[in-house]
Amino acid sequence: MSLRKSHELHERRFSRNLGVGLTLAAFIVIIFGLTIVKVSGTNFNMAPQEVQN
């Protein structure tokens, strides 16, 4: 069975779903960006046991 539009609901809610999708994608980018900034920051220290390993 192929993945295809099976109901008019998909067309009707396309803009709403697109909005939610883009919002979630933006949230992922923010989390990723924050992680990079925090890890690159001068006050970021690894836990002692991780340093030993």
Partner: peptide, 12 residues
């Protein structure tokens, strides 16, 4: 009912 359906903008 469809005519009154909320868009993304309504939630915003």
């Amino acid at each position: 009912a469809h005519a009154d359906e909320a868009s993304f903008g309504d939630y915003f």
